[in-house]
Write a protein that binds this DNA or RNA. Structure first.
Lengths: 341, 341
DNA sequence: TTGTAGGCGTTATCAG
DNA sequence: CTGATAACGCCTACAA
C-alpha cells in the first residue's frame, strides 16, 4: 500500500505537509498543495483511516445493532436512513445483527468497542421496549424504534403509533362510519397497544359506544412464530348479520388477509366494506386493488434523525442524554376507504 | 482508553507478554496467563483492532455494497446471510448503499479502501448483470445475485432462476394443467427472462404448444418506478372464454394481484384456478389464503456462500477468481395449486 | 519463557 | 509556511 511517506517523497515535501493537504489544514502554499495533489493522484494514495484513528481517537464509524433484520420487511428503511445520513456526513456504518440472542449481542458490543466506533444505533425492528445488553462496554448509544425499560436511560426515537391510529380512526368517522371492526396486532408489540388505545379513544371521543366496535385478536405468540387468526377473524366479522361498514387492521399484512376474506365472501371493497391498514408497507398497500388506505410509519426518518441524535450525543452538544423523540405518522388515503352511503 | 501497556503495568509484565496472551500465542506460563487475564478483566481492556490492523495489514472487515437496499423486501436476507457468516468467522461487516448512483458508488469504494477492508461483496438486489464502478480502487470482490457484464471478470454467485421456473412448470404439468397463463416480470430483470425461458422450455418438452399458453407482460419501466399491469392482465386472462386452469406469476407480489383478480371474479383458488408465484416472499406467500405455491430463492445462502467465496479469494486459496456459482431454487408446494379435475 | 527495540501510517507539537 | 520528532496501540524480530 502506498503511504503518506511515498507521497511526500514524490512531491518532495515532508509527510506532515502531505497530511496538511489531505486534511485541508491552513498554511500551505497553493503551489505546494498542487504538487502534493499531483503526487496523490499519481500514486493513487488513499489515507489509512485505521492509522488516523489511533492518533485522533475518532473513527467516524457508527455501528448499527439490529435484532431481527429482514424478518420485518420495512426494516431496511431504517437502515437506509442511517446510511444516507452517514454518507452525507462522512461517516461509515458497521452493521451487526443479533437475532435477538443475548450472547451474540454482548459479542457485538465488544466487537464494536474493539473497532473504537464513535457510537451505536440500537435498532429494534418492532416498536418495543428494550434493554441493551452492552455489559461492561460503554459507547454513546441511541435507541431507534424503541425506548429503554424503566430504570435504564438512553436517548431514543420512536414513531407516534398513537397519533397515527387516532388520525386513521378519525378518518373513518369523518367518512360516516359508525360501526367499525378492529383486528389487533400481536399484543407483544408496543404499537399494538398504542394503536388500539388510540382507536378506542378516538371512537369514544366521537360518540361511538363499545357496542359499535367489534374487536378481535389477529395474532399472538412469540414474535416471528406467532399464530395467525386474521383470515378466520375477518371472515367471521364480515359474516356478522350486522356487519361493520369499516374494518381496521393492525397492519397492512393483516389488511391483505382481510381483503381476501372480504372478496371470498363476495363483498366489494370499498363499496360494501371499507378496509384500512397500518404501516404503508408498499408491497402490500400498493399491491392491493383497490390500493390501501393506511398510516405510513416514518422508518426512514427514524434512521436519519436517530443518526443525527447520536451525532449530537457524540459531539457532546445538547443535553440529549435523555431525549425521547417521537416522530409523526402520516395518514395515506387511498381507494380502500370511502364514505358510508 | 485502556491500552495494552496499562494491562502490562497492572499485571507486572511487558506489553509483549500481554499481546501474547491476548492472541493465544504459545510459550507463556499458565501463571503469567492468569495474571494477565486478571488484569484484563479488571481494567476492562479491549484490544484496539485499528492499531492491530496497521501492523498486520488485515482488518477482518468485509464490506457490502448494495444498490437498492430495502426497495426489495427480501434484500435483508442476503445481508443477514453475510452477517451470520461474518459473526461465525470473526469478521465484521461494513455496509454501504449506493442507490444505484455511480458517484456514490465510487465514493463507497474509496471509503472502503480507506478502511483497508479485506474484501467486498457487491450485492445486487435484483438478479441482474452489473459493472462495479470501482474506479482505481482494487479490492477482492465477489458479485452476489448478479454477474459481471462481458469483458469484466469477477467471481459471482447467483440463483438458478431457470431451474426454479422449470421445476415450477413441471409441477403444474404433473398436476394435469394443459392450458397455462403466464404474467411476466419486468424484462429488465435477469430473472424475468430466465424464468420465461424455462417456462417455455418445460412446457414444450411436455407437449404443450404455443396456443396452450397465454403470456402477458405484467410490468415494465425503470426499476422502482415501473408501470404495473398485473391486476388488469390477470382480470383479462381469467375472463377469457377458454380460461387457463393455472396462472404462473413472475413473482409473489404479482401473485397477490392475481388472487385479488380471481376472487373479484368469483373464482375459487385453487378449485377454479391454480395460481403460483416465485420468490417465496413470505409476507405474501404465507399471507395469502390459500397459501401460495411458489419457488424459494436462496437469498440467505447467496449471502453466506458469497461471503465464503470472498474469504477463499482473500486467502488466495482456490482459483476462484472466475468462479461462477449458481444456487438451486426450491419448489415450495402449498395449497394454491391443485390437480385439474 | 520473557523482554527490548523498532516500525506500521498517521497526526500533534513545536521549532525553524 | 514547513519540517523534525514524538506519540498513538499494537506486533514482528530478535535478544536475553
Amino acid at each position: 500500500m502506498v503511504s503518506i511517506k511515498d507521497v511526500a517523497r514524490v512531491a518532495g515535501v515532508s509527510d506532515k505537509t502531505v497530511s496538511r493537504v489531505v486534511n485541508g489544514e491552513p498554511n500551505v502554499t497553493a503551489d505546494t498543495i498542487e504538487k502534493v495533489q499531483l503526487a496523490i493522484a499519481g500514486l493513487g494514495y488513499i489515507p489509512n483511516l485505521a492509522a488516523r484513528s489511533i492518533r485522533s481517537n475518532r473513527t467516524d464509524i457508527i455501528g448499527i445493532i439490529t435484532d431481527f433484520i429482514s424478518t420485518t420487511p420495512y426494516s431496511g428503511d431504517i437502515v437506509r436512513g442511517v446510511q444516507d445520513w452517514a454518507g452525507a456526513n462522512g461517516r461509515t456504518v458497521l452493521l451487526a445483527n443479533t437475532d435477538g440472542d443475548q450472547d451474540r449481542e454482548a459479542n457485538v458490543w465488544r466487537t464494536f468497542k474493539a473497532h473504537r466506533i464513535d457510537g451505536v444505533l440500537y435498532v429494534a425492528m418492532y416498536h418495543r421496549v428494550v434493554v441493551p445488553a452492552a455489559g461492561e462496554v460503554s459507547i454513546p448509544t441511541v435507541l431507534v424504534n424503541s425506548h429503554a425499560e424503566d430504570g435504564y436511560s438512553y436517548p431514543s426515537i420512536e414513531p407516534d403509533d398513537y397519533g397515527g391510529a387516532y388520525d386513521l380512526t378519525r378518518h373513518l368517522i369523518d367518512l360516516g362510519h359508525r360501526r367499525i371492526g378492529y383486528i389487533r396486532l400481536n399484543p407483544l408489540l408496543l404499537g399494538a397497544n398504542q394503536r388500539l388505545d388510540a382507536f378506542l379513544a378516538a371512537a369514544q371521543a366521537h360518540g361511538l359506544s363499545e357496542n359499535d366496535m367489534i374487536i378481535r385478536l389477529g395474532m399472538e405468540g412469540p414474535i416471528g412464530r406467532e399464530t395467525n387468526y386474521v383470515y378466520r377473524e375477518a371472515l367471521d366479522i364480515l359474516s356478522l348479520p350486522d356487519r361493520p361498514t369499516a374494518l381496521v387492521c393492525g397492519n397492512d399484512e393483516m389488511a391483505l388477509q382481510a381483503y381476501l376474506a372480504a372478496l371470498s365472501l363476495g363483498l366489494r371493497i370499498p363499496d360494501d366494506i371499507t378496509i384500512v391498514g397500518f404501516d404503508d408497507f408498499r408491497t402490500v398497500s400498493l399491491g392491493l386493488k383497490p390500493e390501501l388506505t393506511t398510516v405510513a410509519l416514518p422508518y426512514y426518518d427514524l434512521g436519519w434523525q436517530g443518526a443525527d441524535m447520536l451525532d449530537q450525543l457524540i459531539q457532546g452538544k445538547g443535553g440529549s442524554e435523555t431525549e425521547r423523540r417521537v416522530l409523526r405518522c402520516s395518514l395515506v388515503t387511498r381507494r380502500s376507504s370511502t364514505r358510508v352511503c
